[in-house]
Design a protein around this nucleic acid. Sequence first.
DNA 1: ATTATAGGTGAACAATCGTTCACCAACAAG
DNA 2: CTTGTTGGTGAACGATTGTTCACCTATAAT
Lengths: 188, 188
Amino acid sequence: MPKDAKTSIRKFYQTNKRMPTYSEIMKMLCFKSKNAVFKLVKKLAAGGFLEKDESGKLIPARLYEQTRILGSIQAGFPTPAEEELVDTISLDEYLISNKDATFILKVSGDSMIDAGILEGDLVIVDRSITPKNGDIVIAEVDNDWTIKYLVKTKTQIYLKPGNKLYKPIYPENELKIAAVVKAVIRKY
Amino acid sequence: MPKDAKTSIRKFYQTNKRMPTYSEIMKMLCFKSKNAVFKLVKKLAAGGFLEKDESGKLIPARLYEQTRILGSIQAGFPTPAEEELVDTISLDEYLISNKDATFILKVSGDSMIDAGILEGDLVIVDRSITPKNGDIVIAEVDNDWTIKYLVKTKTQIYLKPGNKLYKPIYPENELKIAAVVKAVIRKY
DNA sequence: ATTATAGGTGAACAATCGTTCACCAACAAG
DNA sequence: CTTGTTGGTGAACGATTGTTCACCTATAAT
């Protein structure tokens, strides 16, 4: 008896990191004819669950690497079965625009807790962005790297901690800003 | 003249969401023989940049959907060129374990600011986890959904806001907990 | 001058690819 | 009973797959 097609294909993609071939789908769904797969794929593609290449190869349509996003939960949670109408995103795509200039680093210290950035959080930083006033930046101060607000006034540039216990840092000579913080992620 | 192989292949994967075929690599690198690709792939695979299937198909090795992670930036930022030795992760894989039970929703209100969860943040929640004492949960209170700490004592269960201005919520009858917060992400 | 070695061409290989055809059983609608 | 429709089998198709072989340069080392 064939297992559920969608979840089987999704699981294949998740483990093999590529879409299965028609023969492979045939085997994993216990079909005995490739044509059965051909017709099944046609249906799934019409339903938007799959997409095909110009050469016929399968490519992952949404909801593969993606996670369902809920605008508001007022209406209650959808069950995993009725997973159709909600929007989905890929976290990587959502958070990272310029991949080559993007790094992740772990926050140490509590100098930004008022900005909701705690010790142990991961920050996604972009080195290709020119920092603006108010941006949270990674800067070098006294041969040490810290995360602070960047404040640009007409007369000067300085770093402001997101913690009232700490004082702003006014650079003596040069202020080296390494990257701009684009996102914060915290895992429990 | 052939362009740089690595970036070309990566770009192909990024746009087509699958690895190129030998012939396709041949065309995009302006080779005239598939064997040239065969040898090139062999080298890249030995260098760890590529991986091959048991059937010879290319599968994306790390650093495709992935982002470089820096344990500490004390040593300074690496340049995009010397991107070898650093560790990399995929944010989706890192943050989401049980994909079918995972949802993303946007935080409204300031009841968790002391926990570093601000209004507008996205929280990644898992519906398949049984909530423990101290977990941050999504719960239904008075036909409304809120995000709070869950406190379990021997005698009772209640919800504690992560904001000193608000009081704990003691459920009158039943306490409906919809999901456990696994991660928080914030984009600037 | 000779010898490797790395990197490319060009042709051939069996295997597998996606696709198409004819055919069949089950089932529901008329 | 007939008539579609749906979902499957089985065989065949040309095209493309990854791979291998022999051969051809360059450039560098001995």
